[in-house]
Design a protein around this nucleic acid. Structure first.
Lengths: 240, 240
DNA sequence: GTTCACACGTCAACGCTGTTGTCATAAGGT
DNA sequence: ACCTTATGACAACAGCGTTGACGTGTGAAC
């Protein structure tokens, strides 16, 4: 039997057989346990053996549910997307809708930084992700963007949100002292550079220290939304 | 002897003893070989054993030069930063300068994805980084952006470039088959969704498949530059 | 009810990984 | 020429993902 034939799709499962330790496995339970493991003990804690131990089953039992660890990771990623999307409702104002969705996705991923660094870059092709793509495209096309434009803006919006989430999450995962040192680099190193050798840094030192202390995502999102709005005006009033 | 005591700083090395196969090790040679290994055989090829084999030495000999593989990767990353900025010269056209710098940084990081994913989020506070901050701020202030605005745009520009680089690099780090599957998800899964359940995806399927096949960074960069240009116009012609 | 196919958990094993303790030896200051 | 010790080699360990074989309990069929 090859590895891929070993996996039975979740919908087709009929026999639910408890493990030696009594737990009844399911795709849902495995994904939740994986997420919990990552949240409690860091991303490095997600190994097949540890996950098996946490679930009370043999590690190899997981291969009845996922072809390999990569597929398991995709399921974890999709679960995160689903949690974000579950409470979001579009209002009809495209700019406000994208703003709140972006900020919420960013925040939700940061709430699970270890999981975010592992999964932000992945295209899952699973249910929750598909729903989010459909929704965002709907918002943009409903606002009047032509198809090509809508797809391009969708791409920028989603990749920007995920990549900033991964970036910001990765700093949260650093060790306590590494993060502390990272934060202090701006006031300690940059704010003290002399004006004759580094005129631009010296002139903006105060603003620089304050700005670099927070995420650049909100400002980046605003700029992308502003550029999109400008583009929409051109589409609506062509050849002025 | 503990692991950290085993490492001798590069400057303090006195005895250069050739390995059994004749090569004379050095921090520089190890870093270069690691970069070559990544470039030739992919990120997965960078293991201590393979690196040892490529260098003609026992894997454990590397631990005389780096405390662990993480420290080795940081050394590789540091080498990368230097290479990126070395050839860039501002022309005086702020928008073109930022465009070429962003695209070049993005490309250079992608050429060494393993190092990129590990280092994109770090603030080093070292010479190369400081020079880049000074240069970018100089471009923006020279273009006429007020200090607060210049810092804000610098933040967005640099974080967006690094985060997209990390995102795109992380897909290159995936195993061969995982990446292949990721690419096929758009034509195989998304392009086949029926129009009645997923009207927006179905309507844009063709454009979607083409768009998602490449990085969103160039488009994102253009949108940020466009938003910045609009902002600059407002600053130059206040209170119209 | 009883039977029966097989889904699914378990076990053992493979080859890989990073890392370390110990030892031998050649380099280089004296 | 000696002696210290830096440094490379060797062997071993624990842990990793993954697979093939095995047996047992389940749910369906009759």
């Amino acid at each position: 039997m090859s590895a891929s034939e070993r996996v039975v799709p979740e919908g087709a499962r009929r026999r639910r057989r408890p493990t030696k330790q009594g737990t009844v496995l399911s795709e849902q339970l495995i994904v939740e346990t994986a997420l919990r493991l990552i949240g409690e003990h860091g991303a490095a804690a997600l190994t097949v053996r540890r996950l098996g131990a946490a679930l009370g089953c043999d590690p190899s039992a997981l291969y009845r549910y996922f072809r390999d660890t990569d597929e398991l990771l995709l399921a974890v990623a999709d679960e995160l997307i689903g949690r974000t999307l579950r409470t979001w409702r579009p209002t009809g104002d495209w700019r406000a809708d994208l703003r709140t969705l972006g900020l919420r996705m960013h925040a939700d991923y940061l709430a699970h930084p270890q999981a975010a660094t592992l999964t932000c870059a992945r295209v899952t092709g699973r249910a929750h992700e598909i729903r989010s793509v459909e929704a965002i495209l709907g918002v943009l096309r409903g606002a009047g963007f032509p198809d090509a434009e809508a797809v391009r803006i969708y791409h920028v919006f989603v990749d920007q949100t995920l990549s900033f989430a991964a970036l910001d999450a990765s700093t949260l995962v650093l060790s306590e002292q590494a993060r502390a040192q990272e934060v202090q680099t701006w006031p300690q190193t940059y704010a003290r550079l002399p004006a004759d050798t580094h005129p631009n840094i010296a002139a903006t030192a105060g603003v620089l220290v304050a700005e670099m202390d927070r995420s650049g995502y909100p400002a980046a999102l605003e700029m992308v939304l502003a550029a999109a709005a400008t583009r929409l005006q051109h589409v609506r009033t062509p050849a002025l």
